[in-house]
Design a protein around this nucleic acid. Sequence first.
DNA 1: AATCAATATGTTAACGTTAACAGACTGCTT
DNA 2: AAGCAGTCTGTTAACGTTAACATATTGATT
Lengths: 355, 355
Amino acid sequence: MKKQPGKPVTLAHIAAAAGVTPMTVSRVINESGYVNAATRERVRRVAREMNYRRNGLARGLKRQRTETIGLVLGDIANPFAAELSRGVREILEQRGYTLFICISEHSAKEDVQAFDSLADHRVDGVIVATRASRLGNERLQELIDAGIPVSLIGRDFRHPHADLVTADNLKGGYEATTHLIKLGHRRIGFIGVSLTKSVGLRRFQGYLEALNEHGLLIDEKLIVGNRDGNDQMPGYSTEEMGHDGMTKLLSMKKRPTAIFARNDFTAVGALNAIQQAGLSVPRDVGVVGYDDIPLASHTSPPLTTVRQPTREQGRVAAEFLLRRIEDGHDRPRAEQVFDCQLVVRESTKSDRIKS
Amino acid sequence: MKKQPGKPVTLAHIAAAAGVTPMTVSRVINESGYVNAATRERVRRVAREMNYRRNGLARGLKRQRTETIGLVLGDIANPFAAELSRGVREILEQRGYTLFICISEHSAKEDVQAFDSLADHRVDGVIVATRASRLGNERLQELIDAGIPVSLIGRDFRHPHADLVTADNLKGGYEATTHLIKLGHRRIGFIGVSLTKSVGLRRFQGYLEALNEHGLLIDEKLIVGNRDGNDQMPGYSTEEMGHDGMTKLLSMKKRPTAIFARNDFTAVGALNAIQQAGLSVPRDVGVVGYDDIPLASHTSPPLTTVRQPTREQGRVAAEFLLRRIEDGHDRPRAEQVFDCQLVVRESTKSDRIKS
DNA sequence: AATCAATATGTTAACGTTAACAGACTGCTT
DNA sequence: AAGCAGTCTGTTAACGTTAACATATTGATT
């Protein structure tokens, strides 16, 4: 018994078929107010038969909320984004909210587009997990000023009425680098940033800080990014960057004895380049990654890396957002910083360092 | 000059401030109909000043379309999903549609929830890229019957009014397995399915078919999945499955000389398990993966795998959907099958096979 | 000067839902 | 017998937008 896919069914249609008014049907659908048991059953049956789906547009328009949250991600290809969204969904689901995800492909322009789309469709709040950009920050500012609840994850942007969740990646980068220094390394490379633009990446700043603090010179030749100077590439293609960057470093007369990679994918690329060059990890070169993706414990050798509590960040960001939705725009900013944890595996085990 | 975040700005507010009617403002915003140049400028200025954002709910309600498309993905952590969504977005963007993504975490229940959420919020169409399930298929049927345009990617489900895009994974699995057979392998394992439930995975069927066709016995002991028999895990954690499965296979008295892994992540896990056991790839065990993720060319040894034109599938699915939105529900099903391509790398190079 | 097309703005009603209020009926208490 | 609380249903108006139609005004054409 296939329905003719004509105009979609409305409350009025059901009301007519069940011999009541749309309001009564509304009460049945939403389980609100008094409805006679017999009437309720009848309406339910008719609604089921007609395959009724409520119109979220009309509903949202009337009620002035959609029970919908937007999440803006830079890309979709990495476990980091997946864990984040999982954390967010865990919280939203149990509170009856629906999550819609937008991808910016790490472009400021699409970041803005995502904000606009979500705002236009009147989500009740937005969680932003993309990296800061001038354009993006400007629009974000407007969004927040317009009263849309916003919760930020790991984005270097502050607003008195937007909540913020971050991992302390400065400290993470610092500790990763210090770990290498303590193993005796003196020439430590960094793969994943281009010095052509000012670098806001916290883990990189931690790297610089650690070198400084231990009296090591910062050698710009040991810092490599990808060719076009775009440090906003989708995570999954950064293996390439790690491979190329490492190859470049290995071809130097005085090559580094260890490298710190911007993320685990980059580190895996580096790992491979080292092995291809006939060298061994960690004997010839020590490698540290970042993020502790599942793959990190399955490389050979397993990767030393820095873990951040990703899912937890998603959870907390969602909780902050819901609280702001309930309490209103004037609520002061909540902020939570999570500690990172150095995970030492085989890729840095050696203590025999060649100068 | 911060705006008070009171009630959001409406056409009426702007109209009042600019001394015109809401209709005129609407015309300015939508660039439709005649508006005097001076008026237009004035309205634009006021709208800009008041930081106006149009109300997509009201707009959608009135116009009976939202210029919005939903994409349902099983998980978010893998390059496959990323490429798919990129393809979809490429097409949608140039046609002025916005994409909202929902994640089902490979659960039938959440699959249904995603369909419902998207339908409730009146997206103009839905692209479904999750694996088939009874529950999911039932609801999908209802959606389509209700007249919502649906386009499917790689989902084993057919409906006269839903378009379908697939890669020929049966052939892909067949060719991968045949490749191993031609190299002389006779004991070929498969990692990634549990035989406790009927297996609909096409690439696995291709594996079975190839064995059959070459007169090889199918040994159920060589087919391993993960512990709990759930073959719908998020892609990113399947390294674990590959590792554990391979370890199990290696502990057999007559271990396989090659394995075909459900996807590249699984293959990487297997690779690692082999190396941990002190064996070598491809000398002792040949390994074939599936998907050709960027990582596959950066493992050691680089992975033989099967590539499918992922982004192209996304593009075509989006094109099918838009055409259906324009032409209406009655349009007959369009279907396109893409060929897969075996990519031979180092992980199967050997021809010295131990019996 | 009448006619016409193009330009510019306004009016009305509707999209589908629900909050707020208003009756009407029931049975129970005093 | 009046009063009252509880139950059930209905009416009205509004959420913000725009399609369709209506009304002016302008300038050019005959």
